[in-house]
Design a protein around this nucleic acid. Sequence first.
DNA 1: ATTCTCTTTAGAACCTTTCTAAACTGTTGA
DNA 2: TCAACAGTTTAGAAAGGTTCTAAAGAGAAT
Lengths: 138, 138
Amino acid sequence: MSNDRTYTDIIERLRHAGLRPTRQRIALAGLMFTGEDRHVSAEILHGEAVTAKIPVSLATVYNTLHQFTESGLLREIVIDGGRSYFDTNVGDHHHFYFENDGRLEDIAAEDIVVSQLPQPPGKARIARVDVVVRVRED
Amino acid sequence: MSNDRTYTDIIERLRHAGLRPTRQRIALAGLMFTGEDRHVSAEILHGEAVTAKIPVSLATVYNTLHQFTESGLLREIVIDGGRSYFDTNVGDHHHFYFENDGRLEDIAAEDIVVSQLPQPPGKARIARVDVVVRVRED
DNA sequence: ATTCTCTTTAGAACCTTTCTAAACTGTTGA
DNA sequence: TCAACAGTTTAGAAAGGTTCTAAAGAGAAT
């Protein structure tokens, strides 16, 4: 069945990232990598795990999110307030930020053209260019 | 003397923003609006006030930073971690973010050209476009 | 001066994130 | 298959930044 497929895929993906496929990592990956790109916070993911009857501690959720980020499986986004979001889309893209409700939405890389960039000061190298389009729905 | 000038200017500026020119607001404005554009955190500003022998509570520093932001005297920036920065440059511009030390540096609006933007979803209106150029100095 | 409203303040509370040390579990090799 | 080791998870405490509270203080207007 198709569940075997995803399950095996996830394990393979974790192994490939140099992470032991533990019960918790597999479950959390299963919740996040659903096909649709998502923006999850630690609290949201932990809540989903609890709802799905997967007992995982909040500390493990944080550990996992950071390890996934270091391995390139996730990308951390901090836009506002004291909350971090983790984006399952690690490709080149940007974001709409809805100031009303704090929601994020992806913008495909090709939908924004940054046609000129300044020289980084000193011997600094550009690691990434993040564009956040802040919108309001008043 | 020139101090009278700046002092009067600051009071005028606060009045114009609809804020009572209290001892604390005047002092904090004096520390921030020095001519050079700055990126200050609440903690840094509080530290500078203490050093300058201006007794201000941390709560007042937070209140003031937020009131100034609402009045358009400052602009809040959240890039990383749990710390907010407040930019005395409220004009149209962008930022370099030095991942090594967390420092911010302004990029003039005309040094970055965003020549194409997507349509905001629904009836949302674009409030601002923030570009953060993340650089590393390894 | 008096009064009124806005402002400041210390300290507690809050919230997200990190730390700690002990228990647990994949993995490897015999 | 099983022992042994290193990596992982966990509860709870701690940390770090920000906000709240309620009481005292200070501009502004009369």
